[in-house]
Write a protein that binds this DNA or RNA. Structure first.
Lengths: 126, 126
DNA sequence: TTCATTACTTACCAAAAGGTTGGTACTTGC
DNA sequence: GCAAGTACCAACCTTTTGGTAAGTAATGAA
């Protein structure tokens, strides 16, 4: 169905909600959801491993600082993409995983990854 | 050719080139390629219209400033995603379009858009 | 002569993103 | 008593990003 511009009658423009944020454009929503230097890599790791502890995630996402890792995880939790499970033990144990919405992004991420793969450099074979 | 130590035998780590930048990880490449507040929207508009003049793009990508539009277009041109055709006339006429590599991103963008669509808000019907 | 048009460019500024360092709480092992 | 291990927080700082406002070149129209 093609939506023409100024909706003449009672047609209302759709909005899209991610966590507590609202968007007019689905591309903007997606763009915002994955906006952050490490978010795609976090999702990628969680798509491979199902559940990961904070410290494991830190090892897998190479180069990320603790601050950014937590910050991104929190945002993604707010956005409903990531689950956080706390075990009341000492020393602390927290596991992160993808929610249903988060898992639904995996095919998209796969396409993004495949698109990136097509830019593989051709190496001379000495 | 610089090879870091990790590769014990003849195992070589692949690299991916976007314009003049090199990445170890295809996800990072993709992430970098679309990194910019307006880039996805620019690609989206160019995917719908095939070719657009600068001023038309400015109208279609709502809210973008001239500075950011040019800046992003230049980066995408360097990255090989966007074509720039200059007509030697006065007043100036420049058309932008997607390259083959740029067009190959359209299915990815479609998935991103569809993923965003799934977050449509349910509205109460008064 | 001055204006309009188009596709920029430049200078400057504010805000956001991200990095570094150091600290906390709690318990087990030495 | 002290260090180790875990999952964070808070301060501080630099870099990056994006926005605003103004100016430029070339030509034809008024």
């Amino acid at each position: 169905m093609i939506k023409t511009k100024k909706e003449k009658n009672n047609e209302r423009s759709a909005v899209y909600n991610l966590g507590s944020r609202t968007f007019d454009c689905p591309i903007e929503l997606t763009s915002t959801a994955i906006n952050g230097k490490w978010k795609l890599l976090i999702i990628y790791r969680l798509s491979l491993q199902h559940k990961l502890r904070f410290s494991q995630l830190k090892k897998e996402v190479k180069g990320v600082s603790e601050k950014m890792l937590i910050q991104h995880l929190k945002e993604m939790e707010k956005d409903g993409l990531v689950d956080r499970i706390v075990y009341p033990v000492v020393p602390p144990k927290v596991e992160y995983g993808l929610t249903e919405a988060g898992r639904s992004f995996i095919p998209v991420l796969d396409m993004m990854r495949n698109w990136g793969l097509s830019f593989i450099a051709v190496e001379a074979t000495t």
